[in-house]
Amino acid sequence: MDIDVIVRGTGRFVPERVLTNDDFAQVVETSDEWITARTGIKIRHFVSPGETNSLMAAAAARQALEMAGAEPSDVELIIVPTVTAERIFPATASIVQARLGATKAACLDMVAACSGFIYALSAATAWLRSGEYKNALVIGSEVMSALENFTDRNVCVLFGDAAAAVYLQAEPRADRERGVLHFDLGSDGTLVPLLYQKAGGSAHPPTFTTVLNEEHFITMQGQEVFKRAVRKMDETARTVVAKAGHTPDEIDWFIAHQANSRIVEAAGRRLGVPPEKVPINIDHFGNTTSASIPLLLDELNREGKLKAGHKVVLFAFGAGLTWASAYLVWGD
């Protein structure tokens, strides 16, 4: 069908509780200087008691709906990409649906780690283009603090909690380039051991032993992930730009997953674009996994930096290992 898929609203929820680098220096051998130099992170936000994944996701969704002038009763599809679902089942998206009162929405979660938002955006776009649904909420929401080992200084300082959403709407095809247009998705499952959570699933269900052995926390080989992330983020961004029939210098914004400021900066250099086209906000949020791209998208949108007609590339890399990119033209 001849349909454009337009981002009509963005929103976010960031917990009020803040942890600084100096806070981490009280519990592990680290310092503000060490963390800042290696990650670019200065602060990150953690949930407080009573703040859950679905609560954050619903709050972000309400902002996106308000911006779009839509009501929860209008929503036809909700996808929540997350690695920190509230339960193994049901889907966190179903809990979000109940919080919103979006009674007619189909609901599902997706797991592609830090690439999850783009994977979910791709799925939602395909459904809307098919004519099956007229609109969708895609909400990256993570409580990464639940998976952190606060004795591992290489991992615990990296992550933050947050949720961010986009509201997509299917509209008749225009006579110009607009909306969400192209994707590149990929994975290499042979590299699962580089970044994973060992226990908690059906292969290693929770037991006294898995808890005692700290198998429910994030396990990461940081240097190996770093090397692959820089290369693959460059490759997937170039692929989706080529699909769109453009070159990197013609793109207005490259919105990267905020894993580490050095990764984002290196990806920008490889693409040959100026730093101002590759914004960074990891300094005040940390790595929020599937929430990081929509969080930055909402920040740029609310600051008025995203203008109608701007060419935007989203790109990410995460556990799996997965990678993903999307090309869209902002506004009408």
Results as ranks from 00 to 15, higher is better:
114 C>F: 12
141 S>G: 13
138 V>Y: 00
126 A>F: 08
124 A>L: 00
131 G>P: 02
89 F>H: 10
114 C>T: 06
127 W>R: 14
138 V>S: 01
144 M>Y: 11
115 S>C: 15
108 L>H: 04
117 F>S: 04
131 G>Q: 05
143 V>T: 15
124 A>H: 00
106 A>P: 09
118 I>K: 07
110 M>Q: 09
112 A>K: 07
104 K>L: 13
133 Y>Q: 12
117 F>Y: 15
144 M>T: 12
107 C>W: 03
125 T>I: 10
137 L>E: 01
98 A>H: 15
136 A>Y: 01
117 F>C: 06
143 V>W: 04
103 T>E: 07
127 W>H: 15
138 V>H: 02
102 A>K: 02
93 A>K: 02
89 F>M: 13
117 F>H: 08
126 A>W: 04
130 S>K: 12
130 S>D: 12
136 A>S: 04
115 S>N: 09
104 K>R: 13
124 A>N: 00
111 V>E: 06
130 S>R: 08
136 A>Q: 03
142 E>P: 11
123 A>F: 11
138 V>C: 00
122 S>W: 02
116 G>Q: 04
112 A>H: 11
110 M>E: 04
97 Q>W: 04
99 R>V: 13
123 A>L: 11
103 T>G: 12
97 Q>F: 07
120 A>S: 12
139 I>T: 13
100 L>R: 03
90 P>K: 06
100 L>Q: 01
97 Q>S: 05
110 M>Y: 09
126 A>E: 11
141 S>N: 14
124 A>I: 01
134 K>P: 05
112 A>F: 01
91 A>N: 05
142 E>I: 09
137 L>R: 02
113 A>H: 08
100 L>K: 01
118 I>P: 01
136 A>G: 02
123 A>N: 13
101 G>W: 06
94 S>G: 13
135 N>I: 10
102 A>E: 04
100 L>T: 00
112 A>C: 12
94 S>P: 11
143 V>H: 09
143 V>E: 05
118 I>F: 04
134 K>Y: 10
94 S>N: 14
137 L>M: 11
120 A>H: 02
135 N>D: 10
135 N>V: 10
137 L>D: 00
120 A>D: 03
117 F>R: 02
115 S>A: 15
106 A>H: 14
140 G>M: 04
139 I>N: 10
99 R>D: 15
104 K>I: 07
122 S>H: 03
135 N>F: 07
120 A>Q: 06
129 R>G: 08
121 L>I: 03
106 A>Q: 09
105 A>S: 14
